[in-house]
Amino acid sequence: MAVLAIARDDVSAEFFDGTARGELLLRKCLKCGHINAPHIEACIRCASPELGWQAAGGTGRVQTFAVVHLRGDPPSRLVVAKVGLAEGPWIDAQIVDVDPDQVHIGDEVTLDFETPEGGEAVPVFRIADR
């Protein structure tokens, strides 16, 4: 099973405008320049609430992951990870097109997007070529 359809709300509208054009927008602090995760409301480093947007470069590493077993006919598995982006922030995302038994903490991953029917585009990752 792939990514679930979700909707935008007022707070996340700019973020999903970004995913629609193939960008993962992160929150850049306008005061100290620190790069924060997309949902952050105040800079983790300097506490300023004045944040802009900056697109992620699209690489990161698997910090941890779980392999979710889905009952169904046939049963399936999906890989959910916390990905540490090269810029610093961690985000929860699915690792797609991978044998779940071949995922390891520390694996390098690259960004892509999936757009389920009726939902916003959502960031996913693929294991980078080894």
Partner: peptide
């Protein structure tokens, strides 16, 4: 589900077992 809090759900983080497994 909608907004930022829905992103983990969209990705498959559905329920406590997945979070604790990670």
């Amino acid at each position: 589900p909608s907004g930022f809090s829905a992103l983990p759900l969209a990705s498959g983080v559905r329920g406590a077992p997945v979070q604790y497994a990670m």
